[in-house]
Design a protein around this nucleic acid. Structure first.
Lengths: 349, 349
DNA sequence: CATACGGTCGTAAACGTTTACGACGTTGGA
DNA sequence: TCCAACGTCGTAAACGTTTACGACCGTATG
């Protein structure tokens, strides 16, 4: 780790001057300040949080306390909160605490991660929204920070990961559709480079190919995440001729907007179009009930916590499993939304 | 702050021994260890995080990085994530970072807060799920930790707070109901001591009284939060005779389960019963559309961040507003769910 | 009795940073 | 010319904790 001391001897000045330069004190020559700042940027210096706050008494962090656990579901909680709860459970067994670090959309994720890690704020990291090629992985590995990811990546630094089994989702969904006579099948995917899009995409495409079908490019519907994205997709579906008779959704809440956008125009899921989605809080109570793949999120969080500890040297005696890389088993919940069967005399493309 | 030094001189032993006793090292007499532990508990000693991790190189914290911002809504995000994003925006302007501290349901909230604060993990605190009488407030005030609460409390330590305007929700909802002929009005409340329950309760009761109506005890429906709670409420409503003709909901996602539970039995919101709820992600796309009160959550988060900074001495020059205590204005969104009008010849109780 | 050893504890250094204090050189005014 | 003032920088202490090292005492062993 490059500290203020190394910075000072690299510049042949005292650490006091370096500190003053970095903190914007007035009693330092402007030239020296620039040299210090340049060297700090070059060497990638980030002030150690412990040293700084031990001396100055401030941490620069503000805490926002919320509560997790089953009984708080619905109080503004969701997908991540359940996972957090599972992770927390594991970590607490070893007197570790979980802190959630929020990277605002306005800030660069790599810079943010770098700042948090190099400060020495945490001993380990869990990252989510994993990209297909994710620079954060290379960074964490280069710094030897223990970490695991929620979601696979093609960036391989030997890290552990856990992920949802999108291959099975895509395969089973398509097989169900095919068994009910569907040939014009669509898939809803996110727009960005997040890896789950690719996984589901390939699974759907390959399973269709295995049944002699091709996934048409116009049947790959990319949208914003969330219920608004679902609503967009419904609009696009309505304008397509021939309209796909079945669709599988990548995101949990897509179904909410999709239902609304379809039902508004008299297209009833399960009667006029087959829909298979993913589990999420509100979806259990939609009507018609959504056929969907779920996963026990708290258990996933527990596994995630254990995977992280398994990659931390200090805890390997407790978790001698080595690097954990695992797709998490699914719960399949049969609902009414995929009941629609294509009539045999249909002339769908 | 009581440190290891004070602990040592209180026991007339050296700080080295105190440290070894606390850390479970073998080379300390068992009697001494017990005396140290007793004194630590008595004086409320918690090891300073900075000192500990500066020396030992570990922090005991694990980071879980997620991303916030409008474009991530729906990716497992929700009520809190939007607020976090707003808070973060304000804090970043002053080089402060927001960390979310999760108190698992299995852990005592007061102990958890105490542990996090006394360690010196954060410079300030925002707490949510505020109780009607909340010991956390007294604790934070006694330790002079700057903090604000999301949600009012009757525990007054001069702290700032922001809250949702439950009085207006209750009043406007009842007035709308009354104007449409409803006399048998119900309200859905949480079971626990969280303050919003009391606020909405009083507002409904008082507005009804102002119109010559009384809120019947059996019309106060307490349930779990979340869509499951809504489903319970639907079941209870169905079994009531005479059934209330209108209901106002305290929680956002209650409506999801409520809809399902009612529609399953042919009771259509807006046609057979009037429903007014609160805004939440899925609710914008429910059918029939929910009449509801919302609030721009990101703006609420911004205000929350500013309120906190206003109570931190170091930032008062930027926020000279003094203590902020404010109910946040509502967005009223007219939908179809409260269209049901009681016929004039109705003989409802 | 002398020695070794284990149990218990105190001493002091170290972690990385900030900051009060003083040193030094230069400049300007009296 | 002399001194004050200023700009710039180095020195060292301090923050709270952990831990290597050695001191001391009592006991067991030869």
């Amino acid at each position: 780790m490059v500290g203020i001391k190394r910075l000072a001897q690299h510049l042949n000045i005292s650490i006091g001057t370096v500190s003053r330069a970095l903190n914007g004190r007035p009693d330092v020559n402007e030239d020296t300040r620039q040299r210090v700042l340049a060297a700090a940027a070059e060497l990638g210096y980030v002030a150690n949080q412990s040293g700084r706050s031990l001396r100055s008494g401030v941490t620069g962090a503000i805490g926002f306390m919320i509560q997790t656990g089953p009984q708080f579901n619905g109080q503004g909680h969701n997908f991540f909160t359940s996972i957090f709860d599972g992770v927390q459970t594991v970590l607490n067994r070893h007197k570790l605490d979980l802190v959630v670090l929020l990277c605002s959309a306005s800030e660069d994720t790599d810079q943010y991660l770098r700042r948090m890690v190099l400060r020495g704020f945490v001993d380990g990291m869990i990252i989510s929204h994993t990209l297909r090629v994710d620079p954060r992985i290379a960074f964490l590995a280069s710094r030897h920070v223990p970490f695991v990811t929620l979601g696979r990546s093609t960036t391989d630094a030997g890290q552990g990961w856990l992920d949802i089994d999108f291959e099975t989702i895509g395969r089973l969904a398509v097989e169900r559709f095919v068994a009910r006579g569907h040939r014009n099948i669509a898939v809803a995917l996110p727009v960005d480079d997040i890896n789950l899009g690719h996984l589901l995409h390939s699974a759907v495409r390959e399973t269709m190919a295995r049944h002699g079908l091709t996934l048409q490019p116009h049947n790959i519907l990319r949208s914003q995440p969330g219920e608004l994205g679902g609503y967009e997709i419904a609009e696009r579906l309505r304008q397509m001729t021939p309209r796909p008779t079945a669709i599988v959704l990548s995101d949990e809440v897509l179904a909410v907007g999709l239902y609304r956008g379809l039902i508004e125009h008299g297209i009833i899921p399960g009667r006029d179009i087959a829909v298979i989605g993913r589990d999420g809080l509100p979806l259990r109570f939609m009507q018609p009930s959504l056929t969907r793949f779920g996963q026990p999120l708290r258990d996933l969080g527990i596994a995630l916590g254990e995977a992280l500890l398994a990659s931390m040297p200090a805890y390997q005696e407790f978790y001698p499993t080595g690097i954990v890389r695992k797709v998490w088993p699914l719960d399949f919940v049969e609902g009414e939304s995929d009941a629609f069967t294509v009539p045999p005399d249909s002339s769908q493309a």
